[in-house]
Nucleic acid binder design. Structure first.
Length: 930
RNA sequence: GCCCGGGUGGCGGAAUCGGCAGACGCGGGGGAUUCAAAAUCCCUUUCCCUUCGGGGAGUGCGGGUUCAAGUCCCGCCCCGGGCACCA
């Protein structure tokens, strides 16, 4: 300002914004403004807020990455903050805080590249992220912030593991029970494992093994996803469809290893059924349903070579159309079922060109093994070989040939199917390739010209089932099978047990030690936590496909073997060397937020009941990205249900309402070589885009380094301030929608704040300029209409429209020629407070208030003022608006019609025509039909 | 292939009880202010035609219901996401 003209020392610009923002952030911290009281314990207080209705609002906590935030990250955080602030102002005790999911592969990968210990690196990242988030003015209770890597936190993660280890799933009660109850049942003989065998006749070792096999956390030798490049095994959920690691895109190999598993399959039905009670989007629910993959049907026992071959089918009603069996190539019965020689006169298509079944099978298996999952997926041509043997169909006694083919998967059902080409497209294709019989058992509609018919219809060619519908036929045949020991009703799931071991350093150690017999023993609760050893050489080894996983913890020799007294005197034990997966810590963090300082329990009963109560119970609002649809949300629900069964929590579900925020995308530009160029340096001439005078092509994608299109919050603070950034992000569109970032549009949000400021404050002196005079009628009505809309929008997370309404109100205020009446200014500040808390605090203080705006009462509309005295009514002729009239808002329909017909314009348009019909919608519209 | 979303101005998006399509913002155009500019304020901005009074078209496409359809129904097309040889 060097022109000598009026200087605006108090114009709302980035500098003033920063001054105001830092001032209030310091104040909030000092005053503990966002502290939410607990009903009891160390976080109880005397504010009286505990008597208000509670609300637990939560974000999916972030992984503290080293690269820092870009403006896309905090979108959801701002959304929950605005909502939380609104709820505080409408009389709720709001719990909102933020934690860090800091264990896991990325931390270690980063540490591996930089050579820094994961802990140091993680801590640095967390404090950096805290700083960045604090600058946004998020109203979090800082006392409740936890990190999954805190010793005091993972102690309780280990404690929960012990709950799982010490429980089994009672299928009669349909809930988890303490393992002791199982032991008692086994001793009493109310559970018998083998007929005519007493529990006492088993050896102690065997007893232990048997009990172990019932636990919810158990060891199993299972085919797992081994990723040598990451040096660890991965959960199914962490492997992409084309058989690579989700993180890093490294090849993953299937191999059997002894691993910790979590018996999530026991909960499949409850995880499925309880989805109904949740306020989640249909998209997420259907992804979970899909993942659980429940299908009801029957297992049917075919016999061949004196061996029973069980087959799972969802269509037992089609059994009369079964013309062959197919086993997965790796099915264990293949070796005992095949013949030594081909039968005479065999179809050449069935042999694969081999001399005998054994060599054909061997060649087929080798070939199938070499096929990648991607090949299998893309190449769906049906292949297979005949085993040389035949199976007997239970109902007919007929003999049908047995094949192996890779279109049958070992991992689902029984790994074997009865093929019914008439009613299954895949079987039809196979039957065509191999020249097998096709028998329709459901009558297709008369105009049916397709191949396999999947739809409903009367059963045909099916003996005693003929004429029945699919549903009836299913019931009938299952009853027959059960009566004749031909099979039984059966439900299958796609869901597999959760692989819980990782060969990594940076994770929670298992509270498990092994004694000489090699069996796992839980580390007693009072010995927790089992602390991660300090390791100098913590990096995983680079490994090749054939090597074994080599857990880094094995290198901490002093730690790995230990002397403990587990109740039978000090003995030497070997520790479990694997660590838990990253999901473990994120499974239950919401519970620790409630009672972070509790050293006796993971959460106190009292506190848990208070915060988790509700219609169906759980976190009242959980906001996060859709990418956690299956993994985190399913695991978390599972653990929560176990804790519920064992009486540690009071609700069957952890998250009552789930809301998926959209993503902020950003324009990215590529030059003619396809290389991305710095998006900040690209200019536009209206149609084309240029980088250093060369034309570049625009596309939209995730913000980030690789697309060179990141915009950081810091750049926004520098130019506009945090309130503007918050306002802009909320104004861009509905919270659940993806939207493109546009830096040039941010100014619009700043202008709103600027105008509000100017309407209330003298830019030269910084003095408040509001008047005590009464606002005029029109403005007052607008104020109350705005208050009404904003309340609605806030409740429905429609912040974009709330801001639009506030802008309209402020635009009217701007047009006033006299100072803004205080009676308008105060509610305006309150309306803005959830969205732009810093400037609201500053204005609130300038308006003479001594207490924080955070707990001021949000304005409530005066119902009387919501109804206009006079309204403008459109008049349509044949549905098109031709004129408008002003009438008293409570005018009768008769008056409305009269006035409409008397309108000059309408009169002239009607001319001599007589209206056929006149529709009057009270207070809204008149439509004249000619 | 199946299952979810979603297609509205140059752009982000409003209008979801069937009742004035385009609120609010960005961008564009014009004006005031200024020596000038920035900033600010005001007007204007769906498209086409216009004798400047106005007229016509219009919410992905084609039908339908209705006095009235972005909104409801039927049949398609396109985009985004999820699942995918799961018996």
């Amino acid at each position: 300002m060097d022109s000598g003209q009026a200087t605006y020392d108090y114009r709302y610009d980035a500098n003033l914004a920063e001054e105001i923002e830092l001032k209030w952030q310091a104040r909030w911290e000092k005053d503990g403004t966002y502290h939410a009281p607990n009903p009891s314990g160390p976080l109880a207080d005397s504010t009286g807020r505990i008597d208000l209705p509670k609300l637990f609002i939560m974000d999916m906590f972030p992984y503290p990455s080293g690269t820092g935030l870009h403006v896309g990250h905090p979108l959801g955080f701002i959304g929950t903050d605005v909502y939380a602030r609104y709820k505080r102002m409408t009389g709720h005790n709001v719990l909102h805080t933020m934690g860090y999911d800091a264990f896991g592969l990325p931390a270690e990968e980063h540490a591996r590249q930089t050579g820094q210990h994961p802990r140091e690196n993680t801590n640095a990242n967390i404090s950096n992220m805290r700083k960045q988030l604090k600058r946004l003015g998020l109203g979090h209770d800082p006392r409740r912030s936890i990190s999954t890597t805190d010793l005091d936190y993972y102690k309780w993660t280990q404690w929960i593991f012990l709950q799982l280890f010490n429980s089994w799933y009672d299928t009669d009660l349909k809930q988890a029970r303490p393992i002791k109850e199982l032991e008692i049942k086994l001793e009493e003989g109310s559970i018998v494992l083998e007929e005519n065998r007493q529990w006492s006749s088993y050896s102690d070792q065997r007893k232990k093994e048997i009990v172990n096999s019932f636990r919810l956390a158990y060891l199993a030798e299972a085919p797992v996803n081994w990723c040598p490049a990451l040096g660890t095994v991965l959960a199914n959920e962490e492997v992409t469809v084309d058989g690579r690691s989700e993180r890093g895109n490294h090849p993953v190999y299937r191999r059997p290893l002894k691993q910790w598993m979590m018996r999530i399959t026991a909960y499949a039905d409850r995880l499925l059924e309880d989805l109904e009670s949740l306020d989640w989007t249909e998209a997420i629910k259907s992804m979970q349903r899909n993942w659980i993959g429940k299908s009801e049907g029957a297992v049917i026992n075919f016999t061949a070579e004196g061996i029973t071959v069980p087959v799972f089918t969802t269509r037992p009603d089609t059994i009369f159309g079964a013309t062959y069996l197919v086993l997965a190539p790796e099915h264990p019965l293949v070796d005992s079922l095949h013949q030594t020689d081909w039968p005479d006169g065999i179809d050449s298509r069935w042999t694969g060109g081999f001399e005998d079944p054994r060599s054909a099978i061997e060649a087929y298996r080798t070939n199938a093994n070499q096929k990648s999952d991607l090949d299998r997926q893309e190449n769906k041509d049906k292949t297979g070989v005949f085993l040389g043997s035949y199976a007997k169909v239970p109902v007919t006694g007929e003999k049908i040939p047995i094949f192996i083919s890779d279109y049958v998967l070992m991992g689902y059902g029984t790994g074997a199917i009865m093929a019914v080409p008439g009613q299954d497209e895949r079987d039809w294709e196979f039957a065509e390739v191999f020249g097998l019989d096709i028998i329709r058992t459901v009558q297709p509609p008369t105009d049916w010209d397709g191949k396999a018919y999947i739809g409903d219809g009367p059963a045909i060619n099916s003996d005693f089932l003929n004429g029945l519908s699919i549903t009836e036929a299913k019931q009938t045949i299952i009853r027959w099978l059960e009566d004749n020991s031909g099979g039984s009703r059966k439900t299958s799931y796609k869901l597999r047990d959760w692989l819980f071991s990782r060969q990594r350093y940076w994770g929670e150690p298992f509270p498990v030690v092994y004694d000489k017999d090699g069996l796992p023993n839980p580390v007693p609760e009072e010995m927790l936590p089992v602390e991660l050893p300090e390791l100098i050489d913590w990096a995983p080894r680079s490994l090749d496909e054939n090597s074994d996983p080599e857990p880094p913890l094995g290198r901490a020799k002093d730690w790995a073997s230990t002397i403990l007294d587990l109740g039978n005197g000090p003995k030497e034990y070997i520790r479990e060397l694997n660590t838990m997966p990253q999901w473990a810590g994120s499974c239950w963090y919401y519970l620790r937020y409630l009672d972070p300082f509790n050293s006796k329990e993971f959460v106190s009963e009292d506190v848990e009941k208070y915060w988790m109560s509700g219609e169906t119970g759980g976190v009242d609002l959980y906001v996060g990205g859709v990418e956690h649809a299956v993994l985190h949300l399913l695991y978390s629900r599972f653990w929560h249900k176990v804790l519920f069964d064992l009486g540690h929590v009071s609700t069957p579900e952890p998250f009552q309402r789930l809301y998926n925020q959209g993503y902020i995308q950003a324009a990215a530009y590529q030059d003619e070589r396809g290389m991305y160029v710095d998006a900040a340096e690209v200019s536009e001439d209206g149609r084309k885009f240029f980088y250093q005078d060369n034309e570049v092509q625009r596309s939209f994608g995730k913000m980030g380094k690789s697309l060179k299109n990141s915009v950081t919050p810091d750049e926004m603070y520098e130019e506009y301030g945090a309130d503007t950034l918050r306002l802009y992000e909320m104004f861009m569109g509905p919270l659940d929608q993806d939207r493109p970032w546009e830096t040039k549009s941010v100014v619009g949000s700043q202008r709103l704040i600027q105008r509000v400021w100017r309407n209330l404050v003298n830019e030269e002196t910084g003095e408040i300029t509001v008047s005590d005079s009464e606002p005029d009628e029109t403005l007052n009505r607008l104020l109350h209409q705005t208050i009404d809309s904003v309340n609605n929008d806030m409740n429905n997370l429609r912040f974009n429209t709330a801001i639009a309404r506030i802008t309209e109100l402020n635009n009217e205020i701007t047009k006033l020629e006299s100072p803004t009446p205080k009676a308008i200014a105060e509610p305006l500040v309150l309306l803005l407070a959830p969205l732009t808390p810093h400037i609201a605090e500053e204005l609130w203080e300038k308006l003479g208030h001594e207490t924080s705006v955070v707990y001021a009462k949000f304005p409530v509309p005066d119902e009387m003022l919501l109804v206009e005295e006079e309204v403008e009514i459109p008049i349509q002729i044949n549905g098109k608006v031709k004129s408008k009239i002003k009438v008293d808002s409570n005018a009768t329909d008769e008056t409305l019609q009269e006035k409409a017909l008397a309108d000059k314009k309408i009169e002239s348009l009607l001319g001599l025509n007589d209206p056929k019909k006149i529709i009057v919608i009270s207070g809204k519209l008149v439509n004249i039909v000619l």
